[in-house]
Amino acid sequence: MTTDTTDVATPRNGASPDPDDAAHVASPRALAWARRRRALADFWRTFRTHRSGLVGLVVLLLIAVLALAAPLLVGSDSRSVTEAPGKSLESPSGRFPLGTDQFGRSLLALMVWGARVSLAVGLLAAVLTVAIGTLVGVTAGHFKGWYATVIMRVTDWFLVMPTLVLAIALATVLDRSIWTTILAIGVTTWPTTARLVRAQTLSVESRPYIERARALGGGHKHVMLRHVLPNVMPLVLAQTTLVISNAILTEATLAFLGLGDPIMVSWGGLLQDARDAGAVSSGDWWYLAPPGLAIALVALAFTLCGRAIESVLNPKLGDRR
């Protein structure tokens, strides 16, 4: 009796097999990355069909580039009060396209620098918010009994309390810094994300493959990290883009109320400086309009991107072009 020594990886056309190709094909990690690349390609292909989402993405990219290139575009000395190049509250001109503030600094340069702080605070606060909300939502949906009851009652308490009031109280108690603002926003705006993630977790854990995973010996960590979390991540991603816009608005509100970092230049801080300088009563519109429009524009751009992402990840929402 002869023994078949043909390798299963040998092509049928007689060509010699490539060990590297065979190992690549047989690698589960390589297959997983291939699926992820295809999923990203499909996501981008569908996202491009949402014109409003593309407009929001382009606006965000332009503002991000300006913020990152601030030292090259306007220079670090443009924030200095002692080296201000203009007069106090000059109206827009060829030299100062957006006018000057009460110290004679170019408002255009301050707007570019302010984009850095506003975007950084919005992104970091949104990450903190979504991280807390996801942790609470997944654990509350996975573990039943007293833990879920207690954690959801705490969540309900945060929901009924005014978010801005809680953020103001926390920012008042702690030191005035950018990290205090991020912490104040993050620990007061997570309940909405927690309830959304918990509802999605309950839906995922009711599916048959979760029961099979548990029957095969999968523990709590395995079920939450390998099955539940990947299924709630699309919802978390869409929620993040929406939370960023709220975080930027909250940061601007705190800065406008004088609870932001007095050293950092932000759009909300510019509004607060304009109020202190009496720009409203004196009619210096160029001091008020640019920061307010910038805040509204960025918030709108993040909202458009978030809605487009949500529509792509959940086709049941319909076409939102």
Rank of each mutant, 00 (worst) to 15 (best):
L68E: 06
L98R: 05
V59H: 11
E83W: 14
T46F: 01
P92S: 00
R79E: 02
S93M: 00
S78W: 10
M111T: 09
V81D: 10
G104C: 03
L68D: 06
V117K: 10
W113R: 12
S106G: 08
L62G: 02
V58W: 01
A126I: 04
P85D: 03
M111N: 13
D77H: 01
S118P: 11
A126F: 09
A115V: 04
R48A: 08
A70L: 02
W113Q: 06
L61K: 08
S106D: 15
D101K: 00
L62S: 07
A69D: 00
G86F: 08
A126L: 05
L57R: 10
K87A: 14
R45T: 03
F47S: 03
V59W: 13
G114R: 09
L108P: 08
A64S: 13
P97T: 02
V127H: 02
A69V: 02
A120G: 05
G56P: 03
A125K: 14
S106N: 04
D101I: 00
S88V: 09
I63C: 15
V65K: 03
S91N: 05
L57V: 10
L62H: 02
V74M: 08
L73T: 01
F43R: 08
V121P: 04
P92H: 00
W44R: 15
G99H: 10
R48Q: 12
W44P: 02
R51A: 14
H50Q: 00
L119K: 11
F47K: 04
R116S: 05
P71I: 01
A70R: 09
E90A: 11
H50I: 12
L72I: 06
A84L: 05
G114Y: 13
E90F: 09
L57N: 13
V55K: 08
G99N: 01
L60G: 11
F43T: 03
L110K: 14
L57M: 15
A126D: 11
G122H: 04
V127Y: 08
S93L: 04
D101M: 03
S52K: 13
L61P: 06
W113D: 07
L62D: 05
R45D: 15
E83L: 15
D101E: 01
S52F: 15
L54W: 14
S80H: 05
V74A: 00
L66T: 00
R79V: 12
R48D: 11
L107K: 01
L98P: 12
P85A: 00
S106A: 12
V74P: 05
L124E: 04
R48W: 07
L54V: 15
L57Y: 14
R51V: 06
V58N: 02
R45N: 11
L73D: 04
V65C: 10
G104W: 06
V121R: 07
G94N: 08
L124D: 06
F43E: 06
L107E: 03
R45C: 01
A125M: 10
R79L: 07
G86K: 04
R105Q: 02
R95M: 03
H50W: 05
G56V: 06
G86N: 09
L68Y: 07
L54N: 08
S88D: 11
L54F: 11
G53A: 07
A84T: 02
T100Q: 02
A69Y: 06
P71H: 06
